[in-house]
Nucleic acid binder design. Structure first.
Lengths: 300, 300
DNA sequence: TCCATTCTCTGACTCTAGTCAGAGAATCGC
DNA sequence: GCGATTCTCTGACTAGAGTCAGAGAATGGA
């Protein structure tokens, strides 16, 4: 990471972020406290649990409560107790609230148009492209990887999503009970590890590795949510799993996959995996891959 | 300006600006009110007039004064009366203030590194490139054009800078008194107009046009500050000058220029100007250009 | 069933940002 | 020289953001 890059990022943070951000806030909150406007926005057309609003906006519970009361007083929002869990309350926009939110939308559009107006068609095109790129890559940078217990809700959500996707995409369909079984304990240290990828606390991907003593470590459960693809999350997960295994003595990694998972296969190939003969009899697998982890293969 | 572009800009404004901005602020102001930190930063290593600080940060005079007092109390800043004008005071960082500012710098770098760290080398490169592009084009979008009186200080600054540059860059040097003279009154409506380009209230370019009854309008004094080149300011100025002249009946625009001004010449060519025989005997000119403004030429 | 936990709300705060009016000193233009 | 203007500072505010402690209701697990 060279100094020039750091300087550019910093300059961006200061100049773009502060100037544009301040303008955006002023537009958004013309006749309403900024906090309320943001909350109104964040509730969204479909409503939202109060708890989720708090974590997403990083609000203190007291503060959030007061903001919601203010919006309720203005008739923009109604907060109702959840059906399933009486403690969790859900905020919903009223008709007036939806209108108000549409107004905020319109103001944001106005500001966006003000940015584009002085530019030539070519400049606009480049600006829009570069903004998309910055947004995408900063999102990628915000993805955090970390170990998780296979039993915890987020982990179970990811694994379930992985199974669902296998079932949806493979020709034959996928039945978790049919192939080689994997006991959750095998994915807990020291036998193995499950890593989750999260974006703003939401789980968006997973990957696991299981050690086999002196033998090859086994990569399993590699999955990335559709919305988070193209951010390099899969590659990061794979890299960290390999590093984890290497640190515990593994010298080779292995994995198998179904032919329907084209992106996964190309990820494995470009990460240095080479196709090998079937090393197990998993009925669902079409391809078996292997990679030396001790540096005798280029890591790319 | 299509809807998709507006949506992208808006999404950028919300997601990037708010998230990064909030992070940046928190890093910057870890143990000090944000306002003070910003002020400390803005004063810069060389000191700064209080008046300039106020306008740049958009602070109320009372507020600015109080912030400066607080920084003074902490021994980070000293505010001294100006030598030339006793009303204007200048804020200067003390040694402790410079150290504190360096610390802010360091924190900004830290944040920048945190953004880059999770990314691959290729992703970093693209992010940095895109950030530079966004910064550049948003700067371009913030440039405002407007008419100005040739006698006002900003206008005189631009024209002086233009002469200086001609003198510096042309082989022969330039003497404003030697060539065809231009009375400032000829650049005031209705005879003509002088447009200034400003970026955050600072003058960064100029351009003028003078009408000649039924004859060709004359483009003069086209200049853009070095720091603001590559933003399309020259092209915008030229376009507005042409539009102004067209609205007042001109059908042809003319201009002459020195061969040393290569960017200007290529701007004229790509804006639809064609080289013609000398139409005056300005000794300093090497090229004479002309463009039909009534639409019989393509405008590009 | 009971106790710990979770979620939400209220009350009582602190701090920062920002506004407005007015006063005093320096300077400018006539 | 004198009045208008400019620049800065102080005092007296308001409002919004955010924190902390504690209470009450709902829930989950032993």
């Amino acid at each position: 990471m060279d100094d020039a890059s750091v300087q550019q990022v910093r300059r961006f943070n200061r100049s773009v972020t502060q100037r544009v951000g301040a303008l955006d806030d002023r537009y958004l909150a013309r006749d309403r406290p900024l906090g309320e406007a943001r909350l109104l926005w964040e509730i969204g057309p479909g409503g939202c649990e109060v708890r989720a609003l708090r974590t997403r906006l990083g609000l203190d519970s007291g503060h959030a409560s007061r903001l919601l009361r203010a919006l309720e007083r203005d008739g923009l929002v109604e907060v109702v107790a959840g059906a399933r869990d009486g403690r969790v309350r859900t905020a919903r926009l009223t008709t007036a609230g939806r209108a108000e939110r549409a107004l905020l939308d319109e103001r944001s559009d106005e500001l966006a148009r003000a940015f584009l107006a002085p530019l030539s068609a070519r400049q606009r095109e480049r600006l829009v492209g570069a903004m998309g790129e910055v947004e995408r890559l900063l999102t990628a940078a915000l993805v955090e990887l970390g170990p998780a217990d296979p039993a915890e809700p987020d982990a179970r959500f990811c694994i379930r999503s992985y199974f669902d996707e296998l079932d949806r995409r493979s020709e034959s369909g996928f039945d978790p009970a049919a192939g080689i079984q994997l006991d959750p304990r095998e994915l807990r240290p020291p036998a193995g590890v499950l890593l989750l990828a999260r974006l703003r606390a939401e789980p968006i991907g997973c990957g696991a590795v299981r050690l086999h003593g002196d033998g090859p470590a086994e990569i399993r459960r590699m999955w990335v949510a559709e919305a988070a693809r193209g951010l390099g999350v899969g590659r990061r997960l794979l890299g960290e799993l390999e590093a984890w295994a290497v640190a515990r003595g593994a010298r080779v990694a292995r994995l198998e996959t179904n032919r329907a998972l084209a992106e996964a296969i190309s990820l494995y190939r470009s990460s240095g995996y080479r196709e090998v003969a079937a090393f197990n009899d998993e009925p669902f697998a079409d391809h078996w891959f292997e990679k030396r982890l001790d540096g005798t293969d280029a890591r790319r």
